[in-house]
Each structure stands twice: as structure tokens, then as C-alpha cells.
Design a protein around this nucleic acid. Structure first.
Lengths: 200, 200, 200, 200
DNA sequence: AATGAATGAGAATTCATTCAT
DNA sequence: TATGAATGAATTCTCATTCAT
């Protein structure tokens, strides 16, 4: 079979999802048109609606890989963080996961305002799952007397905020022209400040 | 003429801007219609276009007060932060300023992706100005040997990330149902962790 | 003002309604397109939707004159039918009213299947109102012993059925080519058969 | 293969026609989709187009059984009506035939407006054939001096109109909630009025 | 012969923008 | 200057029909 378009060996559903992700990313949900998505996917416009009843359903489907990634991650993440090294490893992995899926994240966040079902998914399937391992780690350390008597939920969220801001810096502000941060170094530095801040 | 609508003593331009802010906020830029804005502003739809050539121009104009607020803040903020107390005070004020204008911020952030002129404003007139006083404070402290040899830009951004994440928690995720944080306490705790983390 | 199109001195709403009636008539509701209606009305397609929120609302509005005509007729018709002459006069007027509005009737009938609100209007505002005067006339005559002991509702409906069939003959079957009936004569003959059939 | 669906022992063509009848009936021609018809028929959508070139051709084919029924009826009906009893019997049978096929009739009538070939069929193969026996009966009776000198075509049509209106009452208006007529009684009463009206 | 995925023309509806008043 | 009716391009979505398998 000779087929030069990108739909050759991936399924049409995937082509559409991939095109939708791309277009949603640089136009937003409302700004994206099904016409543009269909062109990018190399299918007829009507074909989109064979796979997704409405444009909104397409939006929801677009996040599936995120949920999947997080669900998988959660299982592995659940394996208790025992020491600083595992924590560092976990944080880096999470950061990488977010960066890798940043386009999706951005839309996910933004559209959450307008679609309660999205908001719920974001909160329960992504945010809470991301926080949980860190919170249980911190709790352990505090209990063992290694860390100060900090407020766990606050601390966990703060830690992620410190990391998130760098992704926003790069991805939203596209501000690398002003200051370019080396990712690995930044993570080390942030963890350093944080751990120094919570340790006794 | 005695007019009882809100446009009575504020100019039409202001009515329109205020209505636009409100509608952009809960519908997003694309979701907002000039018709709804005009109704909220109490003017005819056509009138909007006497003050703003296009809907996009209206979007850009909507952020003016943010810039103004930040410009004013910058002047005052420039007065060096000399000690922890001034830092705490500054951070709280900034946080309050962001929360107060959160609606605008959200649109500002989101639309920045699609409109480079917005992105530039956001980076230069808001973000950089907010970071500067903290960076200069940290630099001072490091120089004086009170703080560890941290990377200043990283630390400053991390600090704001820690705070920002709580606003996002409330405003984007609307996740107060899960955990409700007391704002004043949270700020104290975060600053505590941060300072503990950077101090020698 | 120089304006040669038909929308010159009738309101746009009327132009649209009139065009809609015409197109609904020869294409049916589903077969009619708002595009064709707008062209016939001499307005832009979008203009239709300034006057009628949806195509269906346009359908409902199209029947207003029917209801109005019937409401007016009802008031006059309510004046008791005292003798055969008034009955004849009433029936001819009704028949004329139906013929004059036949296009509307046809759509009204047909679409009643799919839109319960239409069905209810048809039954209550048109059919029942048309039957009432005839029923009360028949009742009177039976009571006075002039007519046989017939079933009033059956007889009234039967009478209208006799007349209606000729309208259907002409308007639906367009069967004048086969047999052409003289309207006035037909009505006389039918009334003759009917009265002869119910009299003692 | 033992197939349990309804298409098992009736031909595919019949399954499709039967499904089409059903769907045309409650959705109308335009409202019906070939997709729904194919599902109801238990065949693939494409299969419909192997049996019927277009949806319209399917519409035309749907009426075949009506024509067949009427053709059969005609042959039997042609056997002269000799007395009132045979007339009564014939009318009841016809009425039953119409009621039984009312769904088809309704579409037949309605779509006749838009498709001349349908209209012609309706007039020639159904309506004329139905009228003929009654007309010849009436003619006979008038000739024999038993009935008054009425206009035969008018009278025949009027008789059917009287009956038809009751079917419309039930089936189109679905107005049984208002008044419910007993079918057998109604037919008796109508024939009674009619015959009384035409007899000397 | 039968399938059903894919098509794309065409449908109703929305909305930023214009312009006569 | 302000209006708001009118516009029509653009949008999402539907569906009869085709065609490779």
C-alpha cells in the first residue's frame, strides 16, 4: 500500500486526536475549528464526527493520554518515597511528564473553567494523584522527626508551585530570551531550597 | 438627563471596559460576544466599535489598569527591601494585588499565548517588575552573607511559584471543597519555608 | 425612497414570514432551507435569526394569522346559528377561510405529527372552534324536534369531512384535471345531502 | 446459518422496505435517515443503496403494497354493489384498509405534493379505484329511482370525506383524549345520515 | 453481494463589524 | 456621537451516497 500521508499507519482516531491536540494548543478550544483539525489530520471534516459526536467530546478525548500517564504514574509513585533520592527522582519524573504534555496541560487548565467535568478530572485524576506521594513522604519525615513541624498540604503544594513556575516561564511566557534556565540545575536548586527549608 | 445606570458618571469607555473584563472573565475571549458586553455596559453594540476598532483591541485595552497598578507598585516597591518584615509585607501586597485582579490575570496569561503583544506586556510590565524587588533583596542578603549562595533568579521565581500555586488552587481548580487554605496563614508558612530554605 | 424589492413597505418580519410560508408550502418544513427563505424574502440569511430564534420558531410564527383569523371568526360564529341560512352562510365562510389559508393548513396538519405544541393549537384553536357553532346548531334543532336523534359530534365532524374532501381534492391531489367541481354548487349539494340526511 | 433477526426468512429488500415504512411514518420522509432505516432493517447502510438507487426511490417503492392491496380490492369491489348491505360492507372494508395502512397513506398524501409521480399514483391507483364502486352503486340507485337526483361524483366524494375525517381525527390529531369515537358505531351513523340524505 | 468507513456538500445558527439614521 | 438593524462569512454538525474490501 502506498500512502504518504501521516495517517498511513496510525489509526484515523489517533490522527484526529493528534491534530486536535496540536490545533487546540495554538488556537485554544474556541479558536480551533473542526475544519482546520480535519485538514491537519488529513481526513474529511465529517470524519471527525464519526469518531467524536461533538467538538467538546473531542476535547475531552484529547486528555485521555494524560489520565493514562497519571494513572500509571500513580501506581509506581505509590511505592513509598523513602529518602530524598527517591523524592528527587519522583519530582523530576513528574516535572518531565508535565513538560512533555504541557500543551495538553495548558488547555486542560484553561478549559477547566468552563467545563466542570474537566475540572473534576483535573483535580481528582491529576492534581491529587501528583500531590499524594509527596504528602505521604513529608508526613513520614515529620513523624520521624527529621523535618520540622510544617503544614503538609501547604508544603506539598508549595513545592510543586516552585517547580511549576519554571514550566510556565518557558512555556507560557516563552521567556527564555530573557533568562534561560537549565532544567536539571533548576530542579536541583529548588529541591535544595525546599528541603533546606523543611528540615530541622 | 439623570441617568441611573452605571454608565452615569463613568465614561462610556469605562463602562465598556468594565463589562468586557467581566464577560472575558467568565466566558474567555473567544466565548465572549460583543453583544453581551454591550448589554452589560448599557450601550448599543455599535458603540463598542466607536471606542475600540476591533474586539481584539478591546482585549488589549482591558489590561491597562493592570499595567497601571504594577507601574505604581513598582515605584513604591523599588524602595529597597531591607529586612524580612518588608519582604513579607511586599509579598502579601503583591499576592493581594494578584488575587484582586485575578480575573484579568487569567485572561492575560491565557491570551498571551495567542497574542505576542500581550505576552510582551505580561513579561515586561508585570512579571519582571514583580520579581525585581525580590531579586534585589535576595542579592543583598546573599552579598551580606546572611543567605546561602543560592541562584537568585531561580529562588525569586520559586518563591512566587509557591505563592501562585495557592491562587491557582482556589481560582482555577475552585478546589476549596477539598482543602480550604487560610490565606494569611499560608503566606506565613510559605515565607517561613522559603526563608528557612535560603538562610544559612 | 427608491426601493423596488418587495420588502419596501412591509416590515422585514412580514417579508420573512411570507417567504417562509411560500417555501414551507412547496418544500415542507424539513425540505425548506433558511437560505432559500432568506433569498425569497430579500434579506440576508442571518437576518431571519434576528426575528426568529430558530427555524422552528419561524414555523410556529407562520401560523399566527390562522389563529387570528379563527379567533375572530369564533367570536362572530358564536352568534347562534338560528336557521339553515345562517348555517349555510357559516359553512361557506369557513370553507373559504380554509381554502384561502390552505397552504398553511396543510403544513399545520402535517407538522402537527412531529410537534405536539402545534397539534394542541390545531385542535384547540382551530378544529374545536370550527366545530362548536355547528354542534350547537345541531343540538338546538334536535332539541326542537326538527332533526332526527343523531349523534351530534359525529354529525358535525361528518359535515366538515364532506366539505374538506373537496378542498383536498383540489389542493392536495390537484385533481382538477380529472373532475373539476364548482365550489359554490358543491357546497350547496353537500349541505343539501347533509340536511336531508339529518332532518326528520 | 440460523439467523434470529427479522431478516431471516424475508428478503433483504422486504426488511428494508418494512423498516423504511416504519421510519418514514414517524419521522416523515425528510426526517428519516438512511442510517436509522438500515439499523431497523438489520442491514448495512450501503446495502440500502444496492436495492434502491436513492432514498427517493425507496420512498416510491414503499407504496407498492398499497397499490397491490387496492388493485386486489378493486377487482373484488368491482362486483356490483347491489344493495345497502353490500355498500355498508364495502365501506367498512375500505375504511379498515385505510386505517390499517394509515401510516403509508399519510406519507403518500403528504409527499404527493412534492413528487408528481406519487400524486399520479395516488389519484389513479388508489383514490379513483376507491370511488368507482360507490359511484356506480349510486348511479344505479338513482337510475332506478330509489335515490334522489343527486350529483354522483359529489355525493361519492362527500361520503368518503365523512368517513375520512374520523380517521384524521384519531390518527392526525390524536384527539381521542377529547372525544373518543367508537369506530363501528360511527360508520353506521355516517352511512345512516348519508343514505337518509340521498334517499327519496 | 454486502459492508460500513469515509466523504463533502449543505444545513442551521452565530457574531464581529458596518452604516444609514 | 450613538444607535441597532442588517449583514454574510464562518462554524459545527448531518446525512445521502460512494467505494475499497
Amino acid at each position: 500500500m502506498i500512502s504518504e500521508d501521516k495517517g498511513a499507519n496510525i489509526s484515523r482516531r489517533e490522527s484526529i486526536l493528534s491534530a486536535a491536540r496540536e490545533v487546540f494548543n495554538y488556537k485554544g478550544f474556541h479558536g480551533a475549528t473542526t475544519s482546520e483539525i480535519s485538514q491537519k489530520a488529513g481526513v474529511a471534516e465529517g470524519t471527525i464526527f464519526r469518531y467524536f459526536k461533538t467538538k467538546k467530546e473531542l476535547l475531552l478525548a484529547v486528555f485521555e493520554p494524560l489520565e493514562t500517564a497519571w494513572a500509571a504514574e500513580f501506581i509506581r509513585g505509590a511505592a513509598e518515597q523513602e529518602d530524598e533520592d527517591t523524592l528527587r527522582f519522583y519530582l523530576k519524573k513528574q516535572l518531565f511528564l508535565v513538560k512533555e504534555n504541557f500543551e495538553l496541560f495548558k488547555i486542560f487548565f484553561y478549559e477547566s473553567q468552563f467545563h466542570p467535568e474537566l475540572r473534576e478530572k483535573l483535580t481528582n485524576k491529576v492534581v491529587q494523584k501528583t500531590l499524594a506521594p509527596v504528602e505521604s513522604y513529608l508526613e513520614e519525615q515529620v513523624k520521624e522527626g527529621k523535618y520540622r513541624e510544617i503544614d503538609i498540604p501547604t508544603a506539598a503544594r508549595a513545592l510543586f508551585g516552585m517547580l511549576a513556575v519554571f514550566i510556565a516561564w518557558e512555556e507560557v511566557l516563552q521567556a527564555e530570551d530573557y533568562i534561560k534556565f537549565d532544567e536539571v540545575e533548576v530542579v536541583e536548586r529548588i529541591i535544595d531550597i525546599f528541603l533546606h527549608g523543611v528540615k530541622k
